[in-house]
Each structure stands twice: as structure tokens, then as C-alpha cells.
């Protein structure tokens, strides 16, 4: 923010903090193409300029794709699900399909997870809105010669949250699926889920109604 010259607002008090809030940030160790944050500003700025300035100030790989002036309501209210893509190098797609069928058929899949409070059991099944083995148009790079099954999962935002590794634990519970190397998880989208299971970009509403910006 400081490098980009963003006129960020600060909280009052002895140690003022910049007003930045992240909505459902991705867990450590996963990739994401869809993170959202709100910034409180001291003055109005052009969203396109803000996007360009922030993008230029960030390290390669951290890209700012879009910025809109926030309408009423909080960002968190507009995010109730994520779509994840999980790449499982060394796993045959048919083996994965079998595990996914077993997962779908279960009404409940309790998995264990380590939290700061110790071991905790969460249900990995209920929050999963859809889970599909997909056939990629091209094989993921860097894994030539090794089979690599790919999974797409839509997970509802619940408390405690169900993360990609919980879904993988679920596949182990229902079908003994043990990937030989750690799978790679990427968050593809976040937003509100429609009846058809599509995820709507949380910035969409403000973008339509926005008087500022170039869209």
C-alpha cells in the first residue's frame, strides 16, 4: 500500500492499523487465483489507477486483477463458497473416480484435523456442493510421464471451514486414497453460489452499478 501510494485509512488509537480486511483468505500451502480484500481509504481514488498501482508494487505472481468501489454490505456477505482445483500427481484418474463416487455416496465423512486447540473432527462431506474428476485439455506441466488426476470441488464456506486437505482426508477415509506426493490445490473462484451451482464474482454487483471505473 505504501509503495503504491494508496491513501489507506488507519484505525484510531495508540497503535493505528491500516484498514484492510481479507475475506476468507486461503490457507497456507495452497495456490489461489481468487482472493478478495477490502481497503478503507481516506479519499476517493480511481479504481483502475488503484489496481495498476498496487499490481506494480507487488511481487511477481501476486497480481491485482480488478478493483471496484465497494457498495453497501460487507465482502464477507457475498462469499459463501469456493471452487478448488486439486492436482494429484501419481494418481490414476479411474482410481480417483472410484474414490469420488464413494465420497458422493456418503452422507457424512468425518475427518480429523490438527487445530491450535488440538485434534478436531469435521465433516468433510456436508460442505461439498459438487465434486468431479475432470479431464484436462492439456496435461499439467512439470509432470511428464506420470499420471495426474484432477479434481474440481465446490465447497461451501462453513465454520469450521472445510479445506482442500480435508476433502483429501475424506477421500482417504472413504476409499483409502493415498496420493504418493502431496497434491497441489488451487482456489479458482469465490463468491455466492447460484441454484445452478455457479459461483458469482462478489465484485459483480458493484461493477454493474458503479458510476466510477472504466467497465
Amino acid at each position: 500500500m505504501r509503495r503504491a501510494g494508496v491513501p489507506v485509512a488507519y484505525s484510531q488509537g495508540f497503535t493505528p492499523h491500516p484498514k484492510i480486511s481479507y475475506a476468507s483468505a486461503a490457507p497456507t500451502g495452497v495456490a489461489s487465483e481468487a482472493e478478495y480484500l477490502e481497503i478503507g481509504l481516506r479519499e476517493e481514488v480511481d479504481p483502475t489507477e488503484l489496481r495498476l498501482a498496487l499490481d506494480a508494487a507487488l511481487s511477481p505472481g501476486l497480481d491485482i486483477l480488478d478493483a471496484v468501489v465497494a457498495g453497501p454490505g460487507s465482502l464477507a456477505d457475498r462469499i459463501d463458497a469456493s471452487r478448488w482445483r486439486l492436482e494429484l500427481p501419481g494418481v490414476e484418474p479411474d482410481v480417483l473416480r472410484h474414490a469420488v463416487s464413494a465420497f458422493r455416496a456418503a452422507s457424512e465423512v468425518p475427518v480429523e484435523r490438527m487445530t491450535k486447540q488440538g485434534r478436531r473432527v469435521v465433516d468433510a462431506r456436508k460442505a461439498v456442493l459438487s465434486i468431479d474428476v475432470i479431464t484436462p485439455t492439456e496435461a499439467p506441466s512439470e509432470v511428464g510421464g506420470v499420471p495426474c488426476a484432477i479434481l474440481e470441488v465446490v465447497v461451501r464456506q462453513v465454520t469450521p471451514s472445510v479445506r482442500p486437505d480435508d476433502v483429501l482426508s475424506g477421500l482417504r477415509v472413504v476409499a483409502d486414497l493415498e496420493p504418493p506426493v502431496p497434491p497441489r490445490a488451487t482456489r479458482l473462484a469465490q463468491g455466492t453460489v447460484t441454484a445452478q451451482g455457479e459461483i458469482v464474482d462478489p465484485l459483480e454487483a458493484d461493477r454493474d452499478g458503479a458510476a466510477i471505473g472504466e467497465r
Binding site: 509503495r3 503504491a4 501510494g5 494508496v6 481514488v45 480511481d46 489507477e49 488503484l50 495498476l52 498501482a53 506494480a56 508494487a57
Partner: peptide
């Protein structure tokens, strides 16, 4: 003082 966004 430098004010305003620093775009590329």
C-alpha cells in the same frame, strides 16, 4: 510531499 497513486 508526493501525493497520489504511483502507477507504473
Amino acid at each position: 510531499p508526493v501525493r497520489g497513486l504511483r502507477t507504473p
